[in-house]
Design a protein around this nucleic acid. Structure first.
Length: 638
DNA sequence: GTAGGGTTAG
């Protein structure tokens, strides 16, 4: 018995069978199992339990195998039943939660076993996952019948079941009742503390419920009234905000947590990073990275992906690459993130190189990976490459293209000037086109000055999303650039009649960890006066080197002088002016803008980067522009 | 045996 798996001393009964937990691979495990069957050791209930436990473990879960082992047991005990139910309930596959429930009801009918306090959490989880209120309530009845309605694990899962089924009233009732019961008759402080800790799970489940329902007010109110909070309490809100687009709230919550006495943990960082990314708050993102390193929080593929995404979206693609390279494990999401990041920065060739590296490393690209690849081709105008990746994905790989893939293709073809082909693709694709895809085509019409198609597309859009200002603005701009001021006036009148306002342009710049927000023509900042004189100085400098603003893209039909000043105060210019005032020479400036950068701002930024010898990195709603020495990384193709 | 997590067309 020299083999490493026969390590348990033979005196102990469980050591009569090899130590399953030492199996490194499924193959190894199956060999050991076969050996146990051959030697009849499998009839030892403990041995069988060990086998069952192994194939139900989250990492090597094989439910079919586990079921077979279970079915061959002479007398499965409560533990055996629980193992199968838990494995089924925890699996996210369709139908598995239902299977868990059916299996549980079978268990209840079986006279030889009785469900215990370990059975119900899994069963309730299965009800919660599949939103089966009716079954959940039946299970609740059984909980009471078996006298388990004061077990804290059972209770929190009961509350969670009601929460997930959207019955907050019942959840709340159960929550309140159990809080009171926990507090009754507490004489020993230690005991009380333990119960408070039990309570915090209940509170968290409730806050999570309101977050899931999108009732952030109620969630926040409950959170604020919690007697004590754990990291999970904070994480529920931070991730809830971030996943629902409330990035500002997520970041504010995170900042508040930083100041309190509960330390952010792994999940906190993973949850807050997407919000930091969307906001482009590089300084905060760096803090998170450093925090993980200092506090021994493992940067695995999940946290790593979030960090890579943060660095790319905050403009620091080099840092993103650095984090990526250092990751010990990279999965499809990690690769998709870096490929998408490179695409966003216009580094199409690098993106495609990474795609080949991904394939060589043995990680299978997902459909999301192809979105990054196609978007790289589209940002760099690689029409043929894009076409061939698309058909490869469909024909060789067999992925059904999603609207995002078609979106990339429409953008790729349209921007390269193949407007008809792009339009045909939209009309012939098997998915219903959405506003985003039409907007991509509209943008292409604008670039190539195809007013006829532009009008047609804009009409589709006005029908589809009547209150979205985008199509009106694009149409108006198209007329304006062709000098058709009458048509511009018509569009403007239509907008006025329908009370449609142009989305205000908005830019952010983060200085010393503080985010400064500027709107178009914004003069509300405390240092507005200085900003204005800086803007004037910039305008003068630009004029001195012979720059004449491109006024053709302004929405209004103003006289030349007025138009020039309307351009001058686009939010990104204000943010850059502010950045120039507040930072020392040569410091790069990072600005994030909610809309696309306009042509005039784009030309001005190139010159500003030259005049002031600054690297200016602007993230618009679609991609990055790195301005340096008078040039932009997008090579004026965007 | 409880609560919280990363990528996705413009």
């Amino acid at each position: 018995m020299n083999s490493t798996i026969y390590t348990t001393p033979p005196s102990h009964p469980s050591s009569l069978f090899p130590n399953i937990t030492l199996c490194k691979t499924i193959k190894h495990f199956k060999q050991v199992h076969a050996h146990m069957i051959k030697t009849a050791q499998i009839h030892d209930p403990l041995a069988a339990a060990e086998v069952l436990r192994f194939c139900a473990l989250p990492n090597n879960r094989d439910i079919h195998y586990a079921r077979k082992v279970f079915d061959q047991m002479r007398q499965p005990n409560c533990f055996s039943w629980n193992t199968i139910i838990r494995a089924l309930a925890e699996s996210n596959d369709d139908g598995k939660p239902l299977a868990a429930l059916l299996f549980f009801f079978q268990m209840v009918c079986d006279a030889s076993v009785e469900p215990n306090q370990f059975t119900f959490p899994s069963v309730l989880k299965a009800c919660a996952q599949s939103s089966r209120l009716k079954e959940g309530m039946q299970v609740h009845g059984l909980v009471v019948k078996y006298g388990l309605d004061s077990d804290e694990f059972v209770v929190s899962n009961l509350v969670r079941m009601y929460v997930m089924c959207g019955v907050m009233k019942d959840a709340h009732l159960l929550f309140i009742r159990n809080l009171i019961e926990f507090d009754e008759g507490d004489e020993v402080v230690r005991n009380h503390k333990k119960k408070e800790e039990g309570n915090v799970v209940l509170w968290n489940v409730m806050v999570d419920g309101y977050v899931r329902l999108g009732e952030f007010g109620a969630a926040r109110e409950l959170f604020d009234s919690m007697p004590q909070r754990t990291a999970v309490s904070w994480n529920v809100l931070i991730s809830g905000y971030a996943q629902n687009g409330l990035f500002k709230e997520a970041i504010e919550m995170f900042r508040e947590m930083q100041m309190g006495d509960v330390c952010p943990n792994y999940v906190t960082l993973v949850s807050v990073l997407p919000a930091i990314s969307r906001f482009g708050a590089l300084e905060l993102g760096k803090w998170v990275h450093l925090y993980a390193e200092k506090n021994g929080i493992e940067i695995d593929d999940v946290l790593g992906s979030a960090l890579v995404d943060m660095y790319s979206k905050c403009g620091s693609i080099e840092k993103a690459l650095q984090v990526f390279e250092r990751l010990p494990r990279k999965n499809a999401i990690t690769w998709s993130t870096i490929i998408g990041g490179l695409a966003m920065h216009g580094r199409a060739n690098d993106a495609l190189d990474y795609f080949s590296m991904m394939e060589r490393s043995g990680v299978t690209p997902s459909d999301v990976t192809y979105i990054g690849v196609l978007s790289a081709c589209s940002h760099a105008g690689l029409v043929d490459k894009g076409r061939s990746f698309f058909s490869h994905m469909v024909k060789a790989v067999g992925f059904e293209p999603r609207i995002e893939h078609y979106g990339c293709m429409v953008d790729l073809l349209g921007r390269a000037g193949h407007l008809e082909e792009a339009e045909e693709l939209i009309l012939n694709m098997p998915i219903k086109p959405d506003d985003v895809i039409w907007k991509a085509l509209l943008g292409a019409c604008k670039i190539h000055g195809n007013i006829e198609m532009g009008r047609r597309v804009a009409e589709v859009l006005m029908d589809m999303v009547p209150h979205d200002s985008g199509s009106y603005v694009a149409l108006s701009n198209m007329y304006a650039s062709s000098g058709n001021w009458e048509a511009v006036a018509d569009v403007r009148l239509m907008m006025k009649e329908m009370d449609i306002r142009k989305d205000p342009g908005c830019s952010w710049i983060e200085l010393d960890g503080e985010i400064h927000e500027f709107l178009v023509d914004d003069d509300s900042h405390s240092r507005a006066k200085e900003i204005h004189s800086m803007l004037d100085e910039i305008a003068n400098q630009l004029r001195l080197i012979g720059y004449r603003p491109d006024t053709s893209k302004v929405l209004l039909n103003l006289d030349e002088e007025e138009k020039e000043s309307a351009l001058q105060y686009h939010s990104e210019k204000i943010a850059v002016a502010f950045g120039l005032i507040c930072t020392s020479p040569h410091t790069p400036l990072w600005v994030v803008k909610n809309l696309r950068i306009c042509e005039d701002c784009h030309s001005s930024m190139k010159l500003i980067s030259k005049i002031y010898k600054r690297k200016i990195i602007i993230r618009d709603r679609k991609r990055f522009h790195h301005f340096e020495h008078g040039f932009c990384s997008c090579k004026d193709y965007w």
